[in-house]
Design a protein around this nucleic acid. Structure first.
Lengths: 273, 273
DNA sequence: CCTGTGTGTTCCTGTATGTGAACGCTGTTC
DNA sequence: GAACAGCGTTCACATACAGGAACACACAGG
């Protein structure tokens, strides 16, 4: 018997939309998305029965659906119809989102320069509801093997990227945006609303946000919002292992981030959207 | 009146699957994919009516479908339900495909090194049917603005990436794989089957493929297959503007590509798949 | 060996879903 | 100003799909 485990990997599970949130729309379309998002978040290939249990969709309906998606190469099955994973054709749509957005195109060279100047990992992210979504990143030379986080979601309140964007809104807007109970990713994650609001005020005053180990133990993170839209939706960040973080490094990072975000704002302001 | 144009951009239109290829599966799932692939390949945002005409789906059905996809953030509508584009949540699934594949993870640093050594644009691609699909690339320092081609498809016979992979198959297999009429992307594209087979033989002998302006005028391209699987499915390439292409550069590129492909093959051979 | 639990697959029916036609609306044209 | 053509939206009916149950098969264990 195979051990029963969470099919969604730990972090993503909390940040992801309520999987069964299929309410009013076209049923098969909702399920198609359910399947794709489940497989995208799963740590390994899944069998029909596993998907059946995870989504609560009848096996026979699911069977037809999966066949359809495999026929379109949006899903792949390895040996003989045993396990399913995201397929090659699903690649294009995500890339299309990235290509259509001028800010992401413009961010590429800027991120490279930032990473080279600081020699730390830098990210571009966007606020979506209560989560931030990674849009682009460049890894520091230290760990090359780190897999790109593009498309991954993290609760905004647990990240510097999110805090600085929340800070661009009023306290009331923040209250309306975030869930009543703030999920914790680590023991350090702020779960108290007033503490969070204090952090946001700090970020508003400083012009940047900082966070330590609130989403990843041992990692500190600085972020500034990309100017241009009000309220801001995009932000740049730089993550540093706490062991390597000196006061000098800190001010270097912050000024480099502010400058890069400014430039990014200017580059995209006149763009036709 | 708006001028009526092709909704799919020139290249992608030919390489893409027959858009109406929805045959036997779950209808709404097929249509969901149709919509996503159409929007991903379109050069701009589309209205409901445009999608209706492009896919031949009844407007009322399409209306519900689009509403559902928007509600799930797989599509976005800008002002007020007027035009549609790929949404933020579609990002994750493509990224998931890339992350699950060890060869793509391993290719990252290798591509960076290749690009730095050659100072030219380098690509990793995979054969899928009669097309190649770009999986990863690093642009040369010369043109930073070039948008990533990840997920884009090109006819295999018109690219060095594809020719070297086709060369890893027998002539009969190639005949079975490719369509009867080879589409041309430029006046230079091989359309004659015997000429193509001769090119494949050349590639088999040399261990790499070369092509000039067959998919992009003024651009030459070298490619070698990543060893490990038989027949090969992945290949590495380097594109060079013809003006800049000397005999010395040529041999430097080929040997760097061969070495990188070998290394990539070794890195991934022992990986658990 | 036969039983039990797992898998993926097929079939048939009731109903949920797709759809054609009609609607309200805006902007353009004569 | 009226007629037209385009747009997105609504609604009631009939079709095609979802889903329960039953199927074939593989494997593990008593």
């Amino acid at each position: 018997m195979t051990r029963e485990v969470d099919l969604q990997d730990g972090r993503a599970a909390r940040a992801a939309a309520p999987a069964g949130a299929t309410g009013s729309g076209v049923k098969s379309a909702d399920r198609t998305i359910d399947v794709l998002e489940l497989l995208a978040g799963a740590p390994r290939r899944l069998t029909l029965s596993e998907i059946h249990r995870a989504l609560g969709v009848p096996k026979s309906s699911l069977y037809n659906l999966l066949q359809t998606l495999v026929a379109r190469s949006w899903l792949e099955t390895d040996d003989r119809n045993s396990t399913y994973a995201v397929g090659l054709r699903a690649l294009r749509v995500g890339a299309a989102y990235l290509e259509r957005d001028p800010i992401i195109e413009a961010a590429g060279p800027l991120l490279v320069q930032l990473r080279n100047d600081l020699n730390e990992t830098v990210h571009l992210a966007r606020l979506d509801g209560a989560d931030i979504v990674y849009l682009a990143s460049r890894e520091s030379a230290h760990h090359l093997r780190s897999s790109s986080r593009i498309g991954r979601r993290l609760p905004a309140h647990a990240t510097a990227l999110g805090k600085v964007l929340l800070g661009s809104r009023t306290d009331d807007e923040v209250k309306a945006l975030l869930p009543d109970d703030l999920p914790a990713l680590t023991p350090e994650t702020v779960q108290d609303f007033d503490t969070l609001l204090a952090e946001l005020n700090q970020a508003r005053r400083d012009g940047y946000s900082y966070e330590q180990g609130q989403n990843t133990p041992g990692l500190g993170c600085f972020a500034v919002a990309v100017p241009g839209r009000q309220p801001a939706v995009d932000s740049l960040s730089c993550s540093v292992p706490l062991i390597r973080l000196t006061e000098e490094h800190r001010s270097q990072i912050v000024s480099a981030l502010v400058q890069a975000a400014d430039e990014l704002g200017h580059l995209t302001r006149r763009q036709s959207w």
